[in-house]
Design a protein around this nucleic acid. Structure first.
Lengths: 230, 230
DNA sequence: GTCTATACTTGGATAGAC
DNA sequence: GTCTATCCAAGTATAGAC
C-alpha cells in the first residue's frame, strides 16, 4: 500500500532510460500515447480505476511499457497531470490575458471552464488529489502542480479587481484558493450524475452577476468603500 | 472492474441477513463498528485505499464480516456515507436553524465546517464522489445522498436572503450548487497538503465580507435593486 | 523499444467449521 | 454471528526473448 512512496520520482529505467536521444526519430511517440491513455483513463475510470492493465488496454499497448517508460503507475499519472495541466494552463492564459474587466473575465473564464467540464480536463486533477490519500507519496508532487493554478488565479483576480475599490476586501490569495476549490468541486459534482447543466447555469448566472456588479461599482460604490479611481 | 454494479444494493445475506431482530441484544453493534472503521479508512486512505482488508484491519475484526453484513464493499461504503451524512446533517441543521441574518449564518456555518475539515467528515463524501468513476454503480446512490445537502443549503440561503433584495439575483438553486461544490473542493484542497490554514483564513474573510455586505444592504442598496423591505 | 511470460501481492468474495 | 481457509481475479513489477 505504501511501497510506491519512495519510487514516485524514479527515472524510467536503471540504464538511463529512453532519454529522447538526439537522433531518435519516432521515439517519445510511445510515451506520448501512454500518457494519452492515462489521461483518458483517469477521466473515465477515475484514480481507483487507473491500473496499468486498464490504461494499457485502452491505449492498445503492452502493460509492461508503462513500467519501462515511467517506472511506476504513479510516475505515469504525474506525467499525465503534467500534460493536461500544461495544455489547459496555456488555454486559460490565452483566453484570460486579454480580459481586464470583471465582465470580460467571467465570460472568457466561463467559456474555457465549460470546455474543461465537457472534456474532463480538470477531472484528472480532482481524481489525483482525491487519490493522494491512498498514495501519500503523490501528495507533495500533486501539490506542487496545483500551486501554479492558484497563482494564475490570483494574478488574474488581482489585475481585474485593481481600481474597482474591491481589492482590499477579499485578499487575492483567499479568493484564488476559493476559486480553484470551487472549480474542483464543480467538476466532482458534475461528473457525479453526468449532468453539467447545473454547472452551465451557474456560469451564466455568474456572468450576469459580474456585469451587474461592475455596473454598480461604476455607479460610485467605490467611494463608499473609501477608494479613489486611479 | 464493473461487476459490483448490480450488487450495490444487494441485501446482507441470502437468508434474510442479520435483520436486527427485536430481541437481539448486542447485535448491530458489530455492524456499527464496521461502519466506523469504513469511515475512518475513507478519511485516512481514501476511496482507492478502502479495501475490505484495510478496513477490517483498522477495525480489528475479520474481513469476511463485511460481506456477511453488507454484501459488498460498495454496500458498506454507502452505509458509511449514510452515517456521516446523517450525523453531520444534524449538526448543520442545529447550528444553522437559528441563523436568520447573513452574518449569523457565516459565523455558524463556518464553525461547523471547520469541525468537518478537522475531523474529515466531508472527506468521506468527496472521496466517494471521486470513486464513483471507478464504480459506476455507486453513482446514482451517492447522487441521491448528496441531494439533501443541496436542498438544505438552498433552504437556508433562501431564508437568509429573504428581504435583503438579493434573492432574485442569484437563484437559490445555483447558489446551493455552488456552495456545496465549494465545500467539497475546499475539503479536497485542504487534505492535499494537510494544511487547513488557507481554508480557515477563507472562512474568516467570508465572515467579514458577510457582515460588511449586510451593512451595505441596510444602507439602502436594497432600493437600488428595486426591492422593498417586508 | 516492445512483447511474452511469469513472480508475487493484494483484493473481493464464498464455504464451512465453530 | 464470527472465524479460518481458500478460490480466483486483478494488480504491480520484473526477466528475458525478440
Amino acid at each position: 500500500m505504501l511501497k510506491a512512496v519512495a519510487n514516485v520520482m524514479r527515472q524510467p529505467n536503471p540504464k538511463g532510460g529512453p532519454m529522447e536521444a538526439p537522433g531518435s526519430r519516432g521515439t517519445g511517440n510511445t510515451k506520448h500515447r501512454i500518457v494519452d491513455a492515462a489521461i483518458e483513463t483517469l477521466k473515465k475510470d477515475g484514480f481507483a480505476g487507473a491500473s496499468a492493465r486498464t490504461i494499457a488496454e485502452r491505449g492498445g499497448f503492452n502493460q509492461a511499457l508503462i513500467f519501462y517508460h515511467f517506472g511506476t503507475i504513479d510516475g505515469l499519472l504525474l506525467a499525465a497531470l503534467d500534460r493536461t495541466s500544461e495544455e489547459r494552463m496555456r488555454a486559460y492564459r490565452e483566453a484570460i490575458e486579454g480580459a481586464t474587466t470583471l465582465t470580460e473575465l467571467a465570460t472568457v473564464a466561463g467559456r474555457v471552464f465549460r470546455e474543461d467540464l465537457r472534456s474532463g480536463h480538470i477531472k484528472v486533477m480532482a481524481e489525483l488529489i482525491a487519490g493522494t490519500s491512498a498514495h501519500p507519496g503523490l501528495g507533495p508532487e500533486i501539490s506542487r502542480r496545483v500551486e501554479p493554478w492558484i497563482e494564475l488565479t490570483r494574478e488574474v483576480g488581482q489585475r481585474v479587481s485593481r481600481g474597482t475599490g474591491f481589492d482590499g476586501v477579499l485578499p487575492p490569495e483567499d479568493m484564488a484558493f476559493a476559486v480553484v476549490s470551487l472549480f474542483l468541486g464543480i467538476e466532482l459534482m458534475s461528473h457525479l450524475d453526468g449532468d453539467t447543466t447545473r454547472a452551465e447555469r451557474l456560469f451564466s448566472v455568474a456572468q450576469g452577476l459580474a456585469s451587474t456588479f461592475e455596473g454598480l461599482l461604476r455607479f460610485g460604490t467605490g467611494a463608499m468603500v473609501g477608494e479613489e479611481a486611479p
